[in-house]
């Protein structure tokens, strides 16, 4: 050490000092952006596609808060004029609810570089929020248990699979969307879900589980306890990548479209930075990244998909057949659907 010391120690100290400086100086000046997003594999994709690109571009640091859409909505409402959240990932009906309560800061298309590249239907009323991906509630099935891929919502009611079907609780997106899909198939409307309720009641009685967390299904598929379930293509795609026996099928009646959105709460203190984050998420490259890792249907029309992703995410024909519900109707009717489900299906 003594002999060779000078040569090694000095650069070492220099490197340490430089490191400390590199660490210290951004910390002092670095801006912090708090995003409220979803957990599980969704978070993994956000961490690999959205956050690093944004952090590199702006030098700001991103903090994440996890929850589901309704929990985020409740938090945005509770925090009101001084929101801890700067950007919120949330489904479109919850976004509509918050818009109705005047809690949102409208997006300025002029500062969004990719605004022109988006599907024109992406922006909400008054540009209060923007759809950043297209998802769906379709049918996830275990190819080891189901020989012919399901082609209709009716296949879930097949006697052969009685007791091997899982459905989502009504408070989750897949839950109420499945209710509405069955309801439409049975001749009901969003204002009258009685046909759907009546049809699902016996299915719910025999269901393996009425899942409240999307990832609850993972273990059930892995153990072979579930043959079929209304679920999300993106989750199913991630699960299949992990080696689980799971595949996705789009029913002929049309899967139900999910349009998760990004919004900026009126109470955010970082509105410019928040807009920059939204812009990052909407850019062509990031949309492609998200489509490939998370199997999310891109909203940026210039995004290009690999073959593998194209088979899973809604695009082309499957995108065409998606049934989109009016978020204004959904947000007004959802509590009523929850009430009826809890009284008549889950009770």
């Amino acid at each position: 050490m003594k002999l060779h010391g000078k040569g090694r120690v000095l650069p070492g100290i220099a490197a340490l000092a430089a490191g400390a400086f590199a660490l210290a100086s951004p910390l002092a000046a670095q801006e912090k952006l708090t995003i409220a997003t979803f957990g599980g594999s969704f978070l993994d994709a956000v961490k690999s596609c959205h956050i690093p690109v944004f952090e590199k571009a702006t030098g700001a640091a991103v903090e994440t808060v996890l929850g589901n859409s309704v929990q985020h909505a409740a938090s945005v409402r509770a925090m009101g004029a001084s929101s801890d959240y700067d950007v919120v990932y949330i489904d479109d009906s919850a976004a509509m609810q918050l818009k109705a309560e005047n809690l949102l800061h409208p997006l300025d298309r002029a500062v969004l570089a990719s605004a022109e590249e988006l599907d024109p239907r992406a922006f909400g009323p008054d540009d209060a929020f923007v759809v950043f991906m297209t998802g769906a509630t379709a049918i996830a099935y275990n190819p080891e248990m189901v020989e012919t891929p399901p082609s209709s919502w009716r296949d879930l009611f097949d006697e052969a699979y009685k007791g091997q079907v899982a459905i989502g609780d009504v408070t989750g997106t897949a839950g109420w969307q499945f209710l509405l899909a069955v309801n439409r198939m049975e001749g009901g409307s969003p204002e009258d879900v009685t046909p759907g309720i009546d049809a699902i009641r016996p299915l719910a009685q025999d269901a393996v589980v009425q899942y409240t967390q999307a990832d609850q299904l993972l273990a059930l598929f892995a153990r072979g306890e579930v043959a079929m379930a209304p679920w999300y293509p993106d989750r199913a795609g991630s699960a299949a990548d992990e080696g689980l026996p799971i595949a996705i099928a789009y029913p002929e009646e049309g899967a139900v479209g999910i349009r998760p959105t990004l919004l900026i709460p009126e109470g955010s203190s970082q509105k410019e930075l928040a807009a920059a984050f939204v812009d990052t998420v909407l850019s062509k490259e990031v949309q492609e990244c998200f489509a490939e890792t998370k199997y999310a249907g891109p909203i940026n029309l210039r995004a290009e998909l690999s073959e593998k992703a194209a088979a899973i995410v809604p695009n082309g024909a499957t995108l065409e057949s998606l049934w989109f519900l009016d978020p204004a109707v959904t947000s007004a009717q959802l509590p009523g659907w929850i009430d009826r489900w809890q009284r008549e299906v889950a009770r």
Binding site: V70, Q71, A73, A74, R77, A94, Q97, D169, T171, Q210, T212, L334, P335, I338, Q342, A346, R347
Partner: peptide, 22 residues
């Protein structure tokens, strides 16, 4: 109790956090 077998506390929680009906 799961999502369906509710008691007062979970009902109140769901009214707040799921139905947003404060």
């Amino acid at each position: 109790g799961g999502p369906a077998y509710k008691v007062m506390a979970t009902l109140i929680y769901d009214e707040f956090m799921q139905k947003l009906d404060w």
